[in-house]
Amino acid sequence: MLLDVQNVTKTYPVADSTRPVLDGACLTLGAGETLALTGESGSGKSTLLHLVSALDGFDSGEILLDGMAMSPLSDVQKAALRRGPVALVFQQLNLIPSLTVLQNLAFHARLGGREDPRQIAGLVDRLGLAGLENRYPEQLSGGQQQRVAIGRAIALRPRLLLADEPTGNLDETTSDAVLDLMLDLVRGAGTALFLVTHSPRIAARMDRHLVLKNGRIT
């Protein structure tokens, strides 16, 4: 099992008390598998994604990645995790404005010491970014930026790709095209995809579809 989320709880402080967001959440994800998690706004979908990517800590339970428990990891080890087996695609994209398209695409892979120039060149073509390599993010359309963000994560060749509403800002046609590309890339690379979305239509295209409600996964 690539990912095993075991009975995880997470609360946030609210004024003088705490608000539970995850209350014994459990899920598993196999290598190369695709999974969609849906739920209402504020149900804790993004929080679970952040816990899995080691961006935040949980109160109890455990998350195992390839059998390795995350809770004892130090800050440095968690950072190393995000430069290796785990990659993220954000809704806001968060491209680096001072780097060109090509530099953005290669950035994460180079940080993780996994740069492969031939793979990057292939990605440029597959993502339809040929001719735009030397442009800066501010010079791209929303769809083009989304493709760069996905390409940046794929270039790392992670075992697990986490995506938080990756097409949330795009229209339906562009959204479909980006999703097609993402599924194509992860399936080609044998990467598992854990995708958070509001859209049942997008969720239906994944291998499995789970719903988060009242802090639990059903």
Binding site: S53, L55, A79, A80, R82, L88, F90, L95, G112
Partner: peptide, 8 residues
């Protein structure tokens, strides 16, 4: 984002 990409 840099932190999310693996820098402490």
């Amino acid at each position: 984002p840099l932190w999310a990409l693996g820098l402490t």
